[in-house]
Write a protein that binds this DNA or RNA. Structure first.
Lengths: 145, 145
DNA sequence: GTAATTGCAAATACTTTGCCACGTA
DNA sequence: TACGTGGCAAAGTATTTGCAATTAC
């Protein structure tokens, strides 16, 4: 599941470059971190990660994430915590999440997402553009129960 | 769709009373407001609503919502904005939402939710307790496009 | 060289708590 | 009366912006 991250990093950065972003240290480190950890992360987590600490300011990470969201390289998720979560947007991949309301653990769900048909219906019926969805399951995990 | 709210208000307050809450002005006004508006609202919206303005402090609304969430009368939703949203939890009813990322409008989706089977599978496979889900569709509404 | 990007510091936004007064049961 | 609840003010946490310095192209 966890293939060598380097090619993926290069591919994502290539997408950024085509979107007009510059190849900066912060960009590389941010993408590597998100790929390596493999789950949505908060701004604080990202800025505090050992790759980024002392390498760039939280404001920098914030603005970088903002640009990446604008260019659909990253998606901002709600996930219920007070802080927003960010995850890499991989073309053709979609994740739903299972979240423990007690310990806050976040797990991506691999099962096929049953929502695509409804999403298509909504697209047609409502005329919404750039439609996507977020599906989260909340509950108390076995450890916490 | 919008039946006389009074009976529903009484019913919800009865549930609160059974949970040990006192029947206060703030509780009544809060429940009436949420019922009347009929969509998730933020703490600020609630505290600023004409029913509650000058009637009680934002901190009061905050703590009241907290109690209502604890007693499963209200649910706190993410919905992607910086502020949390709150909605009445009606037994047997479930809503998914369609949200415009441009103007922020929120609309409940009436179509049957296609997620229940997956939810059941997850409950069995993972052993999570008190499982529920949140499904949101995001996009740009026709007005904003 | 030029425009994008960064760091630092300060400003916002929203939430949460302390403490004492008040009202419901 | 007693304990849940309310108001006010202050603190906490997360986000967002201004501006001058720096860096990628």
């Amino acid at each position: 599941m966890k293939s060598t991250p380097i090619p993926a990093v290069q591919e994502i950065i290539a997408r950024c470059r085509m979107a007009g972003l510059r190849r900066t240290k912060a960009l590389e480190q941010l993408v590597m971190t998100l790929l390596e950890i493999g789950r949505p992360m908060t701004l604080s987590e990202l800025a505090a990660s050992n790759r980024l600490t002392d390498q760039c300011d939280k404001a920098t990470v914030f603005r970088l994430l903002q640009r990446l969201v604008d260019h659909a390289v990253v998606r901002r998720l709600g996930l219920h915590e007070r802080a927003a979560y960010f995850t890499l947007l991989m073309p053709g991949k979609h994740s739903d999440y299972l979240i423990c309301t007690s310990c806050g653990s976040i797990e991506a769900i691999t099962a096929a997402c049953p929502v695509h048909q409804l999403e298509e219906e909504i697209r047609v019926k409502t005329g919404f553009r750039q439609l996507y969805h977020e599906l989260e399951f909340f509950g108390v995990c076995p450890k916490c129960a």
